[in-house]
Every structure is written in C-alpha cells, then in structure tokens.
Amino acid sequence: MHIPDGFIAPQLYLPLYGIAAGLWAHGAKRVARDLDETTLPWLASLTAASFALSFVALPLPGGTSAHVTGVGLLAASFGVWNAFMAASLVFAIQALLFGDGGVTTLPLNALAMGFAGALAARGLFLALRRFHTGLALFLAGWIGLFLPALLIALALGAQPLIAHDAVGAPLYFPFGWAVTLPALLIPHALLGLGEGALTVLGGGLIERLRRRYRHD
C-alpha cells in the first residue's frame, strides 16, 4: 500500500504536502512535550517493529500480497501524535533510503496510514476499551489498516479524473474507483483480521511489560 512516485498528480500531492507539513510541525511539538524517558524506549522499539513488519508480506487471494503496519498498535498504546510521527518516520526512511513508496506520495502515505489510520484506531480503542479491552485492540488494529486502504483507493481512483491529457488518457495512475476500491478494500479487510490479532497480542504484551517495569 506504499504508493510509489509517478502514481499521484501534483494537483493532489502538493496540497497534501501542505497539510502534512502542518501536522508534522504540530506532531513534533506534541511528541517533544509528551515523551519522557520511560515511554521513549517503548516508542522506539515499536517504531522499529513497525518498520520490520512492513517487510513481512502476506499472500492474499488473487495472487497479490499485503503487509501489516502496526499503526493500530502504536496509536492504541501511545496516542495519535506519537503514532503519526513514528509512522511518518518509517515511511520517510522507506522512501528516502530504500525507494519503497515515493517522495511525492509521502504525504498521502503518511496522512492516510499514519494520521487517519492512527486517529481511527485510537478513537475506536478509547470508545470500546471500557467494554472489552481485547475487542477494542482488535478493532483498533483492523480499522487502522482498513481506513487507510479506503483513503488510498479513493486517492488512486481519483487520478484519472484529476490529471489527464487532451483526449482523456490518464497521466498518472490509470484505474478508476471501480477498480481501486475492490482491489484494495477486499484484501485489506481480510488482512485487517491479522493486524487486529497482532494488535491484541502486542497490546497485551506492552501492558504486561509496563506493569512489570512499573513495579520494579
């Protein structure tokens, strides 16, 4: 789901860079204010784990593959801004050092997966944890993967409308919503189950370790 360069028109990625820059500036202030010596090693470990998880591709029906992101776990455990900044760091390293995901598409990847995904995951987790923590973590993981897939499918499918030549041929991503929505939503609805299970396991582990080190 890391969109490479050449897929998104400047009419979309330039405004997205403006929005993302504002959120990155605000996020940096929030992280600097909220982070302390106890939470920082946790966030560092989970960010590194999120980076490593993105290399684990799971095969899906239809011959394609997808990967979990860990954004739901980051958001449920450390809040939206920490998750957004950590995910943005991962996407930036992938794009700038390794060519996974584009530089022009970095704001779309960061806003869809890092911000919207984290916001939905954190919101759902806070709303549901009073009823059942495990279910809240599971749904946080699922929505943290599924909502970004929806946003990216919409952004990709809009490209033929946004940027085309005189005869109507797309200049960037060539497929419309009729193709992108099922192509992205069906696999990610299934993969979200794996992301949800991972969030339950990871969230439980973090909570146990936190309690243990608090008592030490």
Binding site: M1, I3, P4, D5, G6, F7, T64, G102, I152, A153, L156, F173, P174, F175, V179, T180, A183, L184, P187
Partner: peptide
C-alpha cells in the same frame, strides 16, 4: 512504469 490495480508498482 509498472502499475497494478491495487496501487503497487514502480516508475
């Protein structure tokens, strides 16, 4: 330029 329907690809 190689593009799949689900947004994977290279340029």
């Amino acid at each position: 330029k190689a593009i799949s329907e689900d947004g994977h690809g290279l340029d």
